[in-house]
Structures are given as structure tokens and as C-alpha cells.
Design a protein around this nucleic acid. Sequence first.
DNA 1: GTGCATTCTCACCATGTTCTAAGAAATAGC
DNA 2: GCTATTTCTTAGAACATGGTGAGAATGCAC
Lengths: 226, 226
Amino acid sequence: MGERILIIEDEQKIARVLELELQFEGYETGVAHSGTDGLILYREQQWDLILLDVMLPGMNGLDVLKRIRATEYDTPVLLLTAKDAVSDKVAGLDLGANDYITKPFEMEELLARIRVTLRFRKKETLEEADPYLFTVGQLTVHTQMREVSWRGEQVELTKREFELLAYFAAHPKQVLTREQILDAVWGYDYYGDTNVVDVYVRYLRQKLDTELIQTVRGVGYVLKEG
Amino acid sequence: MGERILIIEDEQKIARVLELELQFEGYETGVAHSGTDGLILYREQQWDLILLDVMLPGMNGLDVLKRIRATEYDTPVLLLTAKDAVSDKVAGLDLGANDYITKPFEMEELLARIRVTLRFRKKETLEEADPYLFTVGQLTVHTQMREVSWRGEQVELTKREFELLAYFAAHPKQVLTREQILDAVWGYDYYGDTNVVDVYVRYLRQKLDTELIQTVRGVGYVLKEG
DNA sequence: GTGCATTCTCACCATGTTCTAAGAAATAGC
DNA sequence: GCTATTTCTTAGAACATGGTGAGAATGCAC
């Protein structure tokens, strides 16, 4: 399912070419031929990227950008500027545009910039997520608030139980040996039997779900998303 | 006129590249090659953002951050950390860093994070929230007027009680250990048992509400909004 | 110095948590 | 199907933790 790109460009011919090329690449597109129409479409629907021509009749592209940035959403905006309009580029970047490309442009270059912007955006939103929060399927572990929820329900855990689960959540889909778990959760200086791990895994299974932490016979346990 | 960015980075080459790139983007820059120099520059001039390398010879980047945060100014700090230094990241965020980026990084990504941080900052200061006022649910703590109200009612607290509550209010929904609390409220040079914290939590619970500050067994306490 | 408010220490108790150990159940190899 | 190995389950003993009240120490105002 393609990402959605909004094209705000007054020259019908260019707009049409952009639309066709982008659709050919698998994106969904929307077109507006003026700044005001662009803003309306921007507000009405959800977009992953906006291609914005700076030279628009009536409301200028930079004005459009300003209004877009005034809203909460920070959808990436790629500016289309005239070759030598340096001031436009600078102003555009200052207003929060993510990148610009000068007209006339090679389609290939535009596509590359779009790909980079979208890819980058994805990474950014992923990494900017709360670093204390781990999510595996229906399971949510917040290591700072020390809260755990399973299928939307909050679950109360003891200290050990929490630390064990947090370790699993930080290493989802990885088979963890009892030794690894003991080292990480109980500490490298822990003596005693590895059976504690079994017992605590059981506690977690009781409080959460039997399926969540699976046994890998002869090796250890894995947290799999339910 | 560009925003001012202070770069604290010991590797000359990296520092130089950062400086050039940032200047190209229109920022004003300052460079320090050690933690101590960085702190001096930080105090001498006004900065909009600080790029801080965690791995510094002599005074560690986290120490620098700690001292920066010990002052009133809350200039945004962006940490440069090694790829797998998870503990540094967490420690950094705990100390009040606004974001981090792992080395080696793409210039584009760094620039984007700088833009985001500065933009966010601007928005935040525009909103001009009273920096002395903390509100958590029905609780209101004004650290300058030293006033506390709970469910609209004014509450009288002693000095210690107030400082403890203010610390909780400044870190809502975060589980705080007794050690953290002792360091912050009683001072790092406090001797004596951590049981004082328990006692004062009890005082607060008596004067406010039993539910407000919750015990997290084996860990510490959390302030949750009632 | 006296009186009062505040801060802190201490020790007990109830309760919650962690861990051990041993038999039951499940699984894999032959 | 039998045996050996591994995992699950259970109960309870040992331990740790936080709540609590009383009072000692401290600071402060008059």
C-alpha cells in the first residue's frame, strides 16, 4: 500500500506529469492547483509527504508552508523552487521544509529525494519514540513508569517479575538461555539454581498469558508476540 | 540571523566537519574540545542548542551535562553517543538531555534533529508556561511562591515536605528511587538512612492524599495524577 | 534560655517477595 | 513403550520491605 503524496502545483502540465510518475511508482496522489486548495486538501486528508511549488498564484508557496507548519502535524514538505531563487530555499528551510529541488528537475532525482525523505521520516518517528517504552504485540512495558499492560489491561508485577519481563521485552523473538537471563536479571554474581528462572517464567505466564513466553526445550525461553 | 549552537567534541576532525556543516546551514557555532572548555563557553555566552559528545577525555560528557542542568538555563542538549552505549543514552536522558544521536551519524539526520529540537523549543517558549508551576492532576505546586494546592484547597507544608513534593511534581509518573530522592532533596552529601524518605512520604500522604504518591515495592515511589 | 516547630532516628510489625526443593508432568531418544 | 532428561508446578521457609509511632535531636523565634 503506497504512501500518500500531496502535490501542490499550479502548472497543470507539470502537475499531471508528477501525478502519473508518482502513481507509476506506487504512491497514492492528490493534486491541488492553488495554495488555498492545497491547504484544504492538506487538512481534509492524511498525507505522508507534500510536494509544494513555491511559485503559486495568489497565496505563495511559502505562505502555504507557514500555515502547514502552524498545525500540529509535521508532515515532511519538499519544495519545488526556481533555479536561482536562493532566498526561497533558505526561507523554505527556515520555515520547516525538509528539502527542496530546483526546477527544472530530473524525475529520477525527485523520486530519490522523495524516497530519502520518506525513509528518513520513518526512521525518525521510530527512533523518536519513548526510549523507555517496549512494545511487543499486545504487550507494553514502560521501564521508567514501571508499568506493564497486556491486551490493554494493566498488570501488577513484583520487582523481579518486572525486571524479567523487561529483559524479555528488550530482546523480543530472541531465544534467551537461563544463564543469560540469570546474568541480566539476577546479576552475574548470583549463585543458586537456574530453576528460579523457570519459576518466574511461570509467574509471568500466570499473570499474563501462557502463550507469551514460550519454552525452547534444551535452550531457554522466547518472548513472541501474541 | 541563525541560531547559536555550541559543539563540545574532542575529535578535531569531527568538530570541524560539524562546524562547517552547521555554518553552511546558517547556524552560528562555537567549538570546545574538552568538557571544561565547553562549560566555560557555555557560561560565557548565550546558546540555543548544545551538541555534546558523551566520550570526552577528562570530564565525561555526562558530567558536563549534569553541570549544565545544575544551572537555571534549560538550553536543549543533543547527545552524541557511541552506537551501543544504551546506558549512556538512558543516563543522558535522565540527566535532562533532549535527544541523542548515535555515532556514526548521517549529517542529514543530525540536521533534522537539530531542526526538530529548535522548533520544538520555540513552540515551548512561545506557550510561555510559568516555569515555576507544576501541575499534576488535581495537584498544583508553585516552586517560587512555595504554594501547594490539592483539589483546589491550599495546603501548608514544611520546607522538607515542600521540597520533596516539588521533586515529585517535577518528575510525575516516573518511579523515583530513594537514592534519587535523597540526592535531589536532601543533597548528595547526606548520610543517614533512606528511611527518612519513607517518613516524609507518609507526612505528605497525611496532608494530601494517600493515593497521590504510590509505593513501588522494591524500587521507590511515583507521583500519579489522581 | 524557653517553647515550639521541624527534622530525623529507631525499632517493631505486618505483609509481600524471593527462592528452594521435590514430586508431577511433559518431551525426546531409542 | 520405556527411559532419561527437561520443564512445570507447588508449597512453604527465609528474607526483605515499607508503614508506623514515639521520641530524640535540631533549629528558630522571642
